[in-house]
Amino acid sequence: MRDQNLLHEIQPEDGNEPLLSLRGISKYFGGLKAVDNVSLTIENGELRCLIGPNGAGKSTIFRLITGYYRQDSGDVIYKAKEISRLQPFQRARLGLSIKFQTPMVYQDLTVRHNMWIPMQRIYKREAIATEIDKYLKLLGLLEVGEQFVKNISHGQRQWLEIGMALSVKPDLLLLDEPTAGMSLEETQKTAQIVKDLNRDGMAIIVIDHDMEFVRTLNSKITVLHLGKWFAEGNLAEIESNEEVRSIYLGKK
């Protein structure tokens, strides 16, 4: 399984560039190796799940991709460009979008106003209201459109944030624990949204601890452990992998 990591070192020859390529990324915090020589490749339109026990470095990887952290070594290549020097907002303008682990939405604004913010960069003023309606309908938030975000439920906030992350029409969407705190019904709905988006061509990387959710997505899975790349494969391969099961000892 470890050898598969080396395959990422080889660039595809046919000119079909991967969308995102992390090559030998490492990030240290003092003596702690949060991310240790991880390589990862995401193709255009691919759906990938990133799993691993707590502390595996998954969220850190997201932060390295978005530019919140700068890696200590290795390259971050996005759309064939090395983006390590770019500020987070510049990366966002290249089609990168993220839904954070804890919902980062505008607490003191209404749901509609929240959606307005990403949309005003994309749409003309007259068109925004209609577009907002479309998204709110998709996310089931139409009824709470005029509510202040601090008054809506946690699950609704998650969807709002997903909606905001989507509205910029990203090429690569990062979802950090989108189902945290959601009920079973909400989780299933989220899975459906993710699959629909991916079917329409959006590349998505999902971090989640909910194995049922991951199963439903049925995508290629990358497993991280203690900051290192641990395993990679499709759902069946990962589920039958003894080593993967052992690192999850005690977990679901």
């Binding site: 907002f89 966002a92 979008s97 980062m104 939405v105 905001m164």
Partner: peptide, 16 residues
């Protein structure tokens, strides 16, 4: 207003 409300979120929506 967005920047004042949540700087990180606003930046990741592409705003400088």
């Amino acid at each position: 207003v967005a920047t004042g409300s949540n700087t990180l979120r606003t930046e990741m929506l592409g705003y400088d």
